[in-house]
Amino acid sequence: MAAVIEAKGLTRHFGGLRAVDGVDFSLEHGEIHGLIGPNGAGKTTFVSLLSGRIPVQSGVITLNGEDITHLPAHLRVRKGVAYTFQITSVYPRLSVFDNVALAAQSRGAADVPAEVARALAQVGLTGLDLSIAGTLSYGHQRLLEVAMGLALRPSVLILDEPTQGLASGEIDGFKALIRSLVPQTTILLIEHNMDVVMDLADRITVLNFGQVLAVGTPDEIRRNRAVQDAYLGGDHAAG
């Protein structure tokens, strides 16, 4: 398998805080890759560096071999790296249709209404086109956020805590949706819900204090003593 996104020595400090500290990372084509770690481990900062929302201090990011370290965020999106927000960030005063259409037309889709219908069907929001996004339930807004990501038809989809606030029934549907996207789309999944990660991910990267603690399959991660010490024991019980 070839790497879609590769990061080498990625670093970002905020004052004295080493939010991301020399991280090497590779996202293989067509995989579902989980990113976990305790609160404050640097997960969101790390994906913000990947997606270009925060400028890199040092290190290199490549996309399909091309250096994108200093490419502005909106151009990375154009190149197929989509990011869905941790805190739901739909346009609350626009219709569901307009929300998804903004994503579809951004990459120059020929038939925007058809693309919108397709993305809404994928997340199970068909028929809500004309609703105002802000009036949807929280779970539906999360799904709308994912639909906006899908309508970009990305080659890499970065999902920041997508199941937060979803009901358990919705989570099952969500897992099926993610499985249906690979291998055309490569998924990077930041997730607190350990069952979801362990169930979905092909490989998992564990971050701790801004550094990579371990990389491996779900089984390897489960068995990894360092991970258990740092993180899984307490948090797993809680999550």
Binding site: H74, L75, F85, V90, L102
Partner: peptide, 24 residues
């Protein structure tokens, strides 16, 4: 038009629009 939709998107949430691939 599609561009009109993007103008409104910029008004409503600039950061979100950037992450949909638009240059604010």
């Amino acid at each position: 038009s599609p561009f009109g939709r993007v103008m409104v998107a910029m008004r409503e949430n600039e950061e979100r629009s950037r992450m949909l691939g638009y240059d604010p």
